[in-house]
Structures are given as structure tokens and as C-alpha cells.
Amino acid sequence: MGSAMNYIWDFSAVWRNGGMLLDGFANTALLTATCLVLALPLGLLLALMRLSNARPLRFLGLAYVNFFRAAPALVLIVWFYFAFPVIIGVEMNAFEASILAIGLQSAAYMAEVFRGGMQAIRRGQWEAARAIGLSSADTIRFVILPQAVRQMIPVFLIRFAELVKATTLAGVIAYGETVYMANELSTQTYRPLETFTAIALLFFVLIFGITSFSKLLEKRLIAGR
């Protein structure tokens, strides 16, 4: 009790080695962006499968979404790093395994955002589009998605914030993202409390910023209706 109270905080070591944390942050950003590039189109494709008239497509989409949402991200990361390369016989580095694990899982979440957004568009819009003879693809491209995406942006931002957090799990397979670098730094400097306090603040500002922005957008979208 007493020793905890008497702890003297000293952030100077964290400052001096800030470059390491910045590297970690850059790697976090790179992983997040790459996962997003995979997850957004794949999520849209899965959503279209789930809304399709073809039963096998609907089933595949549903199976994918259910599987990836149920699997813990950490388990997926470890599995894609250790087991998947054995199955397909291809070496995979920590970055690639993380993209697959986190990106494929994120796609499942994005699919549900896309699907929810498209289903929220009133039935009359689908019918009016069909009634002028538009194909399903054109209906989605020119009528449904443009309206749905606008409404989906706030939820997308929340999913994006969750994706940023999920990438910190890639540290377990030694991908040099922020938390992994923080761990390295704290073992070098013997200042884990300061290091992780700084990281916690950094993430708080980032995630809180994204979610607040999403709330603000949501309010404006509702007001603008």
C-alpha cells in the first residue's frame, strides 16, 4: 500500500524513446488501413450475398458472418500465424497473418453494417427502382447504397474504432504495433506504468475522438432528415 502511494512518476524515459512508440503507432495505422481495404469490399460482398435471392449465397454469407463474429480475434490471429501456413504450405509473416485474421473478421462486422443500412432503406425505394426496370445491381448501386452509406457512416466509425483496438492483439505474434512497442519500451526502461499510461491516453484520445465524431454525425444526420 505504502509503496504504491510513494511511487514517483517519471515520464522522461517515455519522452526520450517516443520514436519507438511512434513507430508502433505507424504500424498500427498501417495494419488498420490494410485491414480496412480488405474488410470494406469484402463486407459489401458478404452483405449482398446475405440479401441475395439465391439460397446458397445467403447461406454462405450467413455462415461466414456467424463464424467470424463468434471467433475470438486473438485465437484467429494465432491460428492464421501458426496453423494456416501449415495448411496452405506458404510462409506468412506477422503482418500478413494479422491482416487475414483481423481483416476477415472485420469484414464480418462490416457486412452487418452494410446489410443493416441497405435493409433500412424503405421497401418503396427497391420497388420504385425495380418498377422502372433497373437491374438488381443498378438498384443497389444507384438507389440503395448512396442512401444507405450516408446513414451508415456513424456505425462505420464505431466499427473503425473497434478495428483500431483489435489491431493491438497483433502484438502477440510480435507484430510491432503500438502495444507491442510499448511492451518493449517498458522492459528497456523499467517504466511500464508511465509507458502504458501514455499509450492508454493516446488510445483514449483516438478512440474517443472517433466515437464522439460518429455521435455528432449521427445527430446531424437525424436532424437533417
Binding site: 425505394q125 420497388e127 420504385a128 418498377a131 426496370g133 433497373l134 437491374s135 448512396p146 442512401q147 450516408r150
Partner: peptide
């Protein structure tokens, strides 16, 4: 069906214009 629908116009009770 696409061909039929492009030949037959429809006007709905709720207008169903594309708001965007």
C-alpha cells in the same frame, strides 16, 4: 421481368421518389 417492368410504368401511393 426487367423488360416487362421497363415497359410498364408504375406510380405509387407514397411517390417513392429517390431522395438523394
Amino acid at each position: 421481368l426487367k423488360a416487362v417492368r421497363s415497359q410498364v410504368g408504375m406510380v405509387f401511393q407514397q411517390f417513392n421518389l429517390f431522395p438523394h
